[in-house]
């Protein structure tokens, strides 16, 4: 391979006059068509090219009309299917025209180009090393201390300048993930802030509820299910948590945090539509299927004298998906 310095090593023979089309036209027919005269073949070829030219012309005319169609459609209101349909058709027709030209009316070769050597010669490598190390490095070699100082101050710049880029981005997590807005005595309200009374839900009914004053809160969202008309004990120690059959569970899936939004009344199961975790409502919302690792935390509920549902306390464990600081209960 020749290695001219500037890499201009592509082979060089002029072929400018030989840009005819038809290199793709080899086929078995050409070989077996013994009887055909040469002029017949040339005539066929000419006709074929003429036909292709007409195809290209027609499609480009079609493209022009389609683009006018785009303009008109836009003008009369821009109906999506017509606008996009005209656009797509116009672009495709124009594309056909361009491809026909590229495929049949331009030199097809095949042409060849030589590759160049990628690796440098030994001499080039030496020259490189000399410049990098000798020429560049010598200034520092004799001033090691200065070099160290410069390195130190550059590092300090890198570290301190990164402070705002990292630390300012957000508050520290602190206890945020460990608590919700539920407080002892918080009234249970709907998303519109209306307090929920003990006879608001039929048996089998469900409602998304929040602590009063925090309707819509992401962390505090709770699913209220009336599973029976009598208190239900889901787990040991939760005997008093479900007045009149009302069960409250954190609505945040313990898998990846989606709202556990689907309730199957017959099986009394909550289903998370994100990855199909299923929780058993009557058994403390333990996951019975899917990737969720933990039960939905249960909210201790009570009823006041006026018949309003109230929380007895916050959830007793962090709600939602797991995280590193979450302590093992």
């Amino acid at each position: 391979m020749d290695t001219k310095e500037n890499g201009e090593n592509i082979n060089a023979v002029s072929k400018a006059g030989n840009l005819s089309a038809g290199n793709n036209s080899h086929n078995l027919a050409n070989h077996t068509c013994e009887g055909c005269g040469r002029s017949d073949l040339a005539e066929q070829e000419r006709r074929r090219l003429r036909a292709l030219e007409v195809v290209a012309q027609l499609s480009v005319i079609g493209a022009l009309l389609c683009f006018i169609g785009v303009g008109v459609t836009y003008w009369v209101g821009g109906q999506n299917q017509f606008l996009g349909g005209f656009l797509a058709a116009g672009l495709a027709l124009l594309g056909i025209g361009v491809i026909v030209i590229g495929k049949y009316f331009m030199p097809q070769g095949p042409f060849v180009e030589q590759r160049h050597e990628i690796s440098s010669t030994v001499q080039q490598k030496q020259l490189f090393e000399e410049a990098l190390v000798e020429r560049g490095g010598s200034a520092f070699k004799r001033r090691k201390f200065l070099g160290v100082l410069m390195g130190a101050s550059a590092t300090m710049f890198g570290i301190t300048f990164a402070f705002p880029w990292i630390r300012s981005l957000g508050p520290l997590p602190g206890k945020t993930l460990f608590q919700t807005w539920w407080r002892p005595g918080s009234r249970v309200v709907t998303v519109h802030g209306r307090p929920v009374k003990v006879d608001d839900l039929e048996v089998g009914g469900i409602l998304t509820v929040f602590p009063e004053g925090h309707a819509g809160s992401s962390m505090s969202q709770t699913i209220l299910i009336r599973a029976a008309s009598l208190p239900i004990t889901t787990r040991k120690g939760r005997e008093t948590w479900s007045p009149h059959g009302y069960l409250g569970f954190s609505k945040i899936c313990t898998h990846a945090g989606c709202p556990v939004g689907l309730y199957e009344e017959q099986s009394q199961q909550l289903l998370c539509p994100c990855h199909q975790s299923i929780f058993d409502v009557l058994d403390g919302a333990v996951p019975v299927f899917g990737p969720a690792p933990r039960p939905l935390p249960q909210l201790p509920l009570g009823v006041d004298e006026e018949g309003y549902l109230r929380a007895r306390s916050d959830f007793l464990e962090p709600v939602g998906p797991g995280f590193w600081e979450r302590t093992t209960a």
């Binding site: 030209i101 042409f111 060849v112």
Partner: peptide, 25 residues
């Protein structure tokens, strides 16, 4: 040691412009 095909200008430019238009379409 070589590459065989069509030159950038005009053949490849035409073909690839066609492909661009088709993708767009």
């Amino acid at each position: 040691q070589n590459v065989v095909g069509s030159p950038l200008w005009p053949t490849f430019v035409a073909k690839t412009t066609g492909l661009f238009l088709m993708t767009f379409a």
